[in-house]
Design a protein around this nucleic acid. Structure first.
Lengths: 209, 209
DNA sequence: CTAACGTTTGTCCAACCGGTCAAAATTTTG
DNA sequence: CAAAATTTTGACCGGTTGGACAAACGTTAG
């Protein structure tokens, strides 16, 4: 499956890292087809042929980026665990996801771009790894519902709604800022969002009687 | 501002419509830069020069599409009115938005694509028309809160969360279907989503004591 | 010093893409 | 029918882009 241990020098590691950082910047702002190798090379401070020495094809950069992305992107959901108090667990999950939207908006946009285009390069991962993980967590949530800890609803759509509301602040950032205006669209918007989402989900999921 | 009444023949009207329909299909699937005039022309069943006879530049097609889009896209929010019961109004708004995600996913994706790229072509509209409309509706919602009809929260973020959760089912459709799997990812997913969102928002916004 | 290896760059190419143009085909009008 | 106006197309152009390549540069080890 994977190229077996591509044995790389320290310089290669560093340069590849530099390129990936530059590519994340460029891809997330312009999409895959909207980005050129030249742009990435310039952002990484090297010539185009030099960049192509480290990544043979434009697609290779994108692929490497996507693979790394998925791991870190799903980390918060993996942490959602059965041991703590359900409401607390959900609140932390929402907070962590919102923090990721705030701290890693480029990653969020890269991912959104890929899904919007129909996920041509990561469809197997969605149907495999992602589905498995979500199904597993849905079972956990169902347990909480059966135990009367949170209100009964559809766990899958609950997860979707958390993804949607939190990632919205990364993917639709320009719209959020435009609507909030100069005064309310500053750094405080994430705290406002956190307060609102916490209230919405906590109240919306309180077990009924 | 606008070209004054471009006096078009019936054929021109029809062909332009045909092109716009084809362009919506192509743009929403590949983004602006990811789409070629040839693709659109082929989807519209005509040659590239012929298409360029009706729209001089690729950007003109996109611009026309975006202008039309915004009107229909904001219609549900415009309908949100002060006269009815607040909870009923909000529930209808959510339902209408979700129906739009179901019935016009291409429009939703076109819009998402534009925002993701930083909204280069519609920024003025976001800061102008859209912000004005949202501010106006936020005032209405604030009135409901003061009257004790719904819980007190941030009206802007409430609107954002409705946008995010409903449009998610259009923009991230492939992911939703991949995660739900064959059995649960069929046509019923919108009804499940409607039920879940209704519960989340209704319970989450019930006035406290 | 020099051979070997890894790195960097200038140059080039073929494919693609947005858009032009003039001529041909078609439709409309008198 | 014939002239005028509109619509359609093939051929073409200049700029961009992904990628190839060989030569140059630098570094390390014998």
């Amino acid at each position: 499956m994977e190229s077996p241990a591509p044995r790389r020098t320290r310089i290669q590691q560093e340069k590849r890292e530099l390129i990936l950082e530059a590519a994340l910047e460029v891809f997330s702002a312009n999409g895959f087809r909207g980005s050129t190798i030249d742009q990435i090379a310039e952002a990484a401070g090297m010539s185009k042929p030099n960049l192509l020495y480290y990544f043979r094809r434009k697609e290779d950069i994108h692929e490497t980026l996507m693979q790394r992305l998925l791991d870190t992107w799903l980390a918060p959901l993996r942490e959602l665990d059965d041991i703590g108090d359900p409401m607390t667990e959900l609140r932390s999950y929402i907070r962590r996801k919102l923090e990721m939207a705030r701290d890693f908006p480029r990653e969020s946009r890269l991912f959104a771009n890929e899904i919007l285009q129909g996920a041509p390069r990561i469809m197997p991962l969605l149907e495999g790894e992602l589905k498995t993980l979500v199904d597993e967590k849905a079972t956990v949530i169902k347990g909480w519902m059966r135990a009367g800890k949170i209100a009964r609803t559809d766990p899958w759509h609950l997860i979707f709604s958390i993804w949607a509301t939190t990632q919205h602040y990364a993917d639709f950032d320009v719209q959020v800022r435009a609507v909030l205006g100069i005064d309310r669209g500053g750094d405080g918007r994430f705290e406002d969002a956190a307060r609102f989402l916490e209230q919405l989900f906590i109240e919306g999921l309180k077990p009924k009687a």
